[in-house]
Design a binder for these strands. Structure first.
Length: 270
DNA sequence: ACGCACCCCTGTGCGC
DNA sequence: TGCGCACAGGGGTGCG
């Protein structure tokens, strides 16, 4: 589920719950998700006050008054359950605040992760070192994208999933943005003209902003005990819609690139 | 440097 | 109703 907009929405929901709160309990219910939980995770969180939450690419960051940052990733199936009535099978990590609120990280496939680092090591954090610009920031421009794609022989769909090129896009929004900008996913990344990159950059910003807005409208649901996020899924133009029609009535196709499904319109995208 | 296969893991939906 | 298979929003690694 979680690409950038879903993580943004998740962080916004957690912020309402956790910002300014003191952690009285941090519990790991197994040894690891994708990676082992840090041995000192619980100790560093217990008693700490949360002074802010933020996001980088698909990672959520929880800042504490001990100059620590807890970094979580939702993988393919992760979500935070808020004030659950009961702890369920895949609730692997639980935070309880002084005011009695509970956030439980539920992740059936366990591709997610939880880590904790010192503030001053944020820029050196392995996942962030070579990471590209935030797509919604002013740093992400056609000029920037062009410089990163120049000379690349890989196809644009694959390049958009490369977090070093631009950070936070996943399979859904890469497909959507390419459709919106009329670019064939199999186009050689380094051969796309500047004007078309301008269109692509605008499409990426647009689709992500729209998805965040849609997610933002369901924050109340997020905060429910078994809440699910609204995933913008009703607004998908091509993703998950093989053999259905695009906006112009053409049949949507599916191919596989780099092991991931690509949905596209063979007539609208050149 | 790159494409690719494969890996981590569970759940769901489909055809038989 | 059960079974086997394909597939799922991510990303790290190793190989050619």
């Amino acid at each position: 589920m979680p690409e950038l907009p879903e993580v943004e929405t998740t962080v916004a929901g957690l912020r309402q719950l956790l910002d300014g709160e003191q952690i009285v309990r941090a519990e790991t219910r197994r040894d690891n998700l994708r990676w082992p939980f840090p041995a000192d995770l619980r100790q560093r969180l217990t008693g700490a006050k949360i002074i802010g939450l933020s996001r980088r690419a698909k990672y959520g960051l929880v800042h504490t008054d001990r100059d620590d940052i807890m970094i979580f990733h939702l993988g393919m199936s992760g979500r935070w359950r808020i004030d659950p009535d009961t702890i369920e099978k895949h609730d692997h990590f639980i935070i309880e605040t002084k005011s009695g609120r509970i956030a439980a990280l539920n992740d059936p496939r366990r591709f997610g992760s939880v880590d904790i680092i010192r503030n001053e090591h944020l820029a050196d954090y392995k996942a962030f070192i070579a990471m590209g610009p935030e797509p919604l920031s002013d740093d992400f421009t056609a000029l920037n994208l062009q410089s990163k794609l120049s000379g690349k022989s890989s196809i644009i769909k694959t390049a958009l999933l490369d977090q070093r090129i631009v950070a936070g896009l996943g399979n859904i929004y890469a497909c959507e943005a390419l459709y919106m900008s009329g670019i064939l996913p199999s186009s050689k990344a380094g051969a796309i003209s500047k004007p078309r990159l301008e269109t692509l950059v605008a499409a990426i910003k647009s689709v992500l902003a729209s998805a965040i807005e849609a997610g933002g409208s369901t924050l109340r649901d997020f905060a429910a005990p078994d809440g699910e996020l609204g995933y913008f899924s009703k607004q998908w133009l091509v993703y998950g819609r093989e053999n259905e029609t695009c906006l112009k009535g053409h049949v949507i196709g599916r191919s596989v690139q780099g092991g991931r499904s690509t949905f596209y319109c063979p007539k609208c995208q050149k």
